[in-house]
């Protein structure tokens, strides 16, 4: 079955991203397809490679990047939400004249339409948030 995933919260304040990660891993193990993971609201903060948790804590951003590489996941960070919160890729850096970028491996920045498309294309859409 084809799943769309929406994540509304950042990596550490709320459990949402961890729950979603565990859900997505279980879905992939069961042979399901993840059409797209869409990061919205503070969820865009899951997409910065500057995350450096202490050694005894999990690195959720890296976990998403690794899972994306292994399963060719489409991790999409909402552009409008990302601009508000300072999540930047090379294109955004250029467009908005920023002095750097911070997007993590496996993530891309795109429009809100990608969420609606995930709703249309997926057989199930599951939202994780606060």
């Amino acid at each position: 079955m084809k799943f769309g995933i929406q994540i509304n919260e950042g990596p550490y304040t709320h459990e949402a991203s961890t729950t979603a990660l565990n859900f997505v891993k279980a879905a992939l193990e069961a042979g399901h397809e993840i059409f797209r993971v869409f990061f919205y609201h503070d969820g865009v903060n899951n997409g910065t490679r500057y995350t450096t948790p202490p050694q005894d804590d999990r690195n959720i951003v890296a976990a998403w990047s690794e899972l994306a590489a292994e399963h060719k996941l489409d991790l999409v960070v909402c552009v409008a939400a990302a601009q508000r919160r300072g999540i930047v890729d090379e294109g955004e850096q250029e467009r908005n004249g920023k002095d750097g970028n911070n997007i993590a491996d496996g993530f891309r920045i795109s429009g809100l339409g990608q969420l609606i498309e995930a709703g249309i294309q997926s057989e199930r859409l599951v939202v994780f948030g606060d």
Binding site: M1, F3, N8, N22, F23, K25, A26, A27, E29, A30, H32, R124, L125, V126, V127, F128, G129, D130
Partner: peptide, 20 residues
């Protein structure tokens, strides 16, 4: 239930509503 059952529940039902 575990995460794998969570996935199965989303499959067995037609849709998911998250009461955030």
């Amino acid at each position: 239930v575990n995460y794998s059952d969570f996935v199965n529940l989303t499959v067995e039902n037609d849709k998911v509503q998250s009461w955030l």
